[in-house]
Amino acid sequence: MLQLIYVSTARNGDAIDLDNILATSRRNNRRDGITGLLHVKGRRFLQALEGDAGKVEAAYARIAGDPRHFALVILSRRSVTAREFGDWAMAADDGSGDVVAQVATLVEGAAPSVRGTFEGFAGLRAA
C-alpha cells in the first residue's frame, strides 16, 4: 500500500470552498479506496493519501492538475503495510484553536515522522 504526503498552496484570488473540497474528496476517495488526512491552514494544504499505489498516484495526478493551487511538493512517498489513517478526514484551521486537538487525535496512529509533519503544520510544536 502506498502512502503519499504533499503540500500545496491555493492561488491568490481563488475562494477556498472547504465544504466542496471535503464532499468531492470523500466521494472520490471512497470510490477509490483511499484514506488519509487533509489539513488546511490558511491557503496551505497538507494531505496524506493511502491506498492502492495506482489509485493514490492517479489521485495525486488529478490533484496536481487542478489549477486552483500550485507549488505542490511531495514530502513523502512510502510503502506502508497498514493504513495509518482509519478513514478519510479533514482538519481546517478556522482560527478557533480546535484544530490543534483535532489534528492530534487524527494522527495518533501515524508513524512518528507523519505525526511530526502534521503536528508541525498545525502549529502544535514550538518553533
Rank of each mutant, 00 (worst) to 15 (best):
L37A: 03
D94L: 13
A110E: 07
L75T: 08
E108K: 11
E119M: 11
A71K: 05
G97E: 06
I16P: 00
A126I: 14
I5L: 15
T117G: 07
A127C: 10
R125S: 11
R44A: 08
T35I: 01
L37Y: 00
G51K: 08
N12P: 01
A101V: 03
G13V: 01
A127W: 13
P67T: 07
I16G: 02
M1G: 08
A71I: 02
S76V: 14
V80A: 14
T105H: 15
L106W: 08
R68Q: 05
M1W: 03
L22N: 05
T117E: 07
F121W: 06
G42A: 15
E108F: 11
F121Y: 10
K55D: 11
G42Q: 09
I34R: 02
G123I: 05
S25I: 04
R43F: 02
R78D: 14
G33C: 03
I5Y: 04
E84W: 00
I34W: 01
A48N: 09
F85K: 04
D66Y: 01
G54V: 13
L4S: 05
Y6E: 05
R26L: 00
T35G: 02
M90D: 02
A61T: 07
D98G: 06
I5D: 07
A10L: 07
I34D: 02
A127H: 15
L124R: 12
D32E: 14
T35R: 05
T24D: 01
A127E: 06
G51T: 01
M1T: 00
Q3I: 03
R77Y: 04
K55W: 10
A82Q: 14
G116I: 07
T35W: 00
R26T: 01
I74M: 10
V7F: 03
G13I: 04
K41W: 09
S25L: 06
I63G: 04
A48I: 04
N29H: 12
G65I: 03
I63L: 05
A111L: 15
I74E: 14
I5A: 10
G86A: 12
P67H: 06
A127L: 14
T24P: 00
S25A: 15
I21Q: 02
R30Y: 08
V99S: 14
N28L: 01
S76A: 15
D94W: 06
K55L: 10
T117C: 11
V107I: 14
R31H: 13
S8V: 03
I21F: 07
N12C: 00
R26G: 01
I16V: 14
R68C: 03
G33E: 03
I21A: 15
A92S: 07
G95P: 07
Q47S: 00
F85Q: 00
A127N: 15
L124K: 07
A127T: 12
A61C: 01
T117W: 08
D17V: 09
A111N: 11
A91R: 09
S76K: 15
S8C: 08
R11E: 13
L4I: 13
G116W: 11
A89R: 12
A82H: 14
A111T: 15
G51D: 03
H69C: 03
V100W: 11
Q47P: 11
A58Q: 11
M1H: 12
V103I: 13
R44N: 04
A23V: 02
R26N: 02
A15C: 04
G51P: 08
A110R: 02
S79H: 13
E57Y: 08
D19H: 06
H39Y: 13
L22V: 08
D94V: 05
E50M: 02
R26Y: 00
